[in-house]
Nucleic acid binder design. Sequence first.
DNA 1: TTGTATGCGTTATCAG
DNA 2: CTGATAACGCATACAA
Lengths: 358, 358
Amino acid sequence: MKMQLTSPAVPAILPVISKKEREVFHTPRKSTATMVDVAKEAGVALGTVSKFVNGQPVSSPYRENIAAAIEKLGYQINTNGRALRSNHSMTIAFIIPNTINPYFALLVHHINMALEARNYKMLLCFTEYNRDRESEFIQMAVQNQLDGIIALTYNPHLVIPEGIPFVTIDRFFSASVPCVSSDNFAGGRMAALKLHELGCRKAIFMRTGSVLTNEPNKRRDGFVSACIELSLPFEVLAYGDEQPYSDFEDYLHAHCQHGRLDFDGIFCATDMLAWQIIHSLRSMGQRVPEDVQVIGFDGIRMFGSLDYFVSTIVQPVAEIARTCVDTVLADAIASRPSLICLPVTYAPGGTTKERMHP
Amino acid sequence: MKMQLTSPAVPAILPVISKKEREVFHTPRKSTATMVDVAKEAGVALGTVSKFVNGQPVSSPYRENIAAAIEKLGYQINTNGRALRSNHSMTIAFIIPNTINPYFALLVHHINMALEARNYKMLLCFTEYNRDRESEFIQMAVQNQLDGIIALTYNPHLVIPEGIPFVTIDRFFSASVPCVSSDNFAGGRMAALKLHELGCRKAIFMRTGSVLTNEPNKRRDGFVSACIELSLPFEVLAYGDEQPYSDFEDYLHAHCQHGRLDFDGIFCATDMLAWQIIHSLRSMGQRVPEDVQVIGFDGIRMFGSLDYFVSTIVQPVAEIARTCVDTVLADAIASRPSLICLPVTYAPGGTTKERMHP
DNA sequence: TTGTATGCGTTATCAG
DNA sequence: CTGATAACGCATACAA
């Protein structure tokens, strides 16, 4: 992460004005109407206008005058003045790897809309899976007096700051840090139940990505739990993010004798992995779902709005977002449960055999 | 758009504190070190610290003292104070329909990174294709004294404000409003040339979406231009966003006699439309690319990072983003060209016959 | 209930 | 080149 700083006062991520950039601002924009103008126009005192704007009771003769003055002058409250004075910026930092991954993109969309509905702004922080950036953004949010942080992170040594509302997605830190996620365990069970219901005789669980202890790892646990319960033979293929994808292909080939796989169902921890696995299977001559059924996890759709990539366990993204926002903005700390799991649903996407069970 | 306002002072989109929400803030966070503290610690005057922080020259005895004091106190500049005083917020509004569409998501990612590299923040504004929201966000940005606006909009009656740097994507307003887009015309030509090169005998152009006069419509013009030049027979199917997708299917069926289409190449104005068309073709029993080749536009990839959905004309999203940022932050208005077209590239994605031309 | 006055942290002006 | 001081727009304790 290369960044030039004007002074060590400000962490790399914070806006700093370089000498050159300053030149841009020699002409300050013509000032819009201020509360003083409104007060003058309405014939009341400044404080009264402030109260009106903030929804505090103002008695009838003045109330209409102020409203009229505001209308007439096109007055808009100045966010910076308010934030400076009141120490709250009406801004929540949302820390997430990127917006290229469709699941993250969906999350960004819904978080932003949920915040907007509450009259808050979102400060988007892309970590690009960089641990240092995760920490730096958190520090930045604290120092900039933001009103809260919602974060989806991977840094195993991440320190959660005190004194600022903090909500994490998909990763449990401690009882004092609320965590919002899908019901991953139930999703894993659901996948196993579905495969079994659709005639699967032996199922494989596959995952890759962060080996960190986080909520999505419960997808495996739920899957295993249901397989045992159903007496459905299964195997677990859990790779870390340092292992190449080709390890999965090696496994597939090793378990394919005379063109026949020794299993007929796969549950992948993400839609993306499912998509890749299906691609590999097809290039091996295996038919999906005829020879082997595949279920993914996430519920990503083509172009964000068309059909599902694969049969999948759908995460309730909008609800997750709303819950994060509600939690981070909750007035009472006490009203913040430490772990909130939201229900998932199953959606067929052409890689399972529901056509045979109409 | 339903939104409750505390007062008419603030447009619906702006943060307003309701009486209830205020209760949250009764405990202001412990104040961090301020410039005054640093000045005291370093034994210099406030103004000198300000200069140091802003990169203005400070002579040697003091410079080190200030740096040390900053380090010791963990001083961080207060964004709100600076913004209030200097009338610039180091924030650019990015107005875009959503982040569900992968092309928009990509744009958001790169715009944010480009802004961060310049020490600016992004205020993300989702219009969800709502014309009123487009206008409201623009008004909000102006009133909130943001430092600029980058916008991808559809409202035909949109008013571009004066006095604030404004850059649009994919839509030309006037010479005084810089517009950044791909070289859509060249992209259209490229598609026609490619189809022709790959043996196509008759090609169809298909589009849907906003009928607004915007840059992407030049995809058709470029396509037509090249077809004429190559003497490649062609037809144009340009629907507006009010027409149902089924109109395309009707066209396909109408032009399919005895299982054979009377054309063998399609250029779709977006990858998404291409994907839908391919789906329709396959369900009609047509083989892609054997019977009919299809080229899309945008360069969207599976899960944002894997293979292309279709053979496609790839937009240089990162360059578009960087150009938007450079332009909106350009110090001299004069150095802002009114229309910037960035070069596109072609990428095969399995829906064209390049295998036959190794 | 309404008005007055002060200060939030910063930048900018102007004398030294 | 540095130091003191006045705004910036708003919220709030306190006085009326």
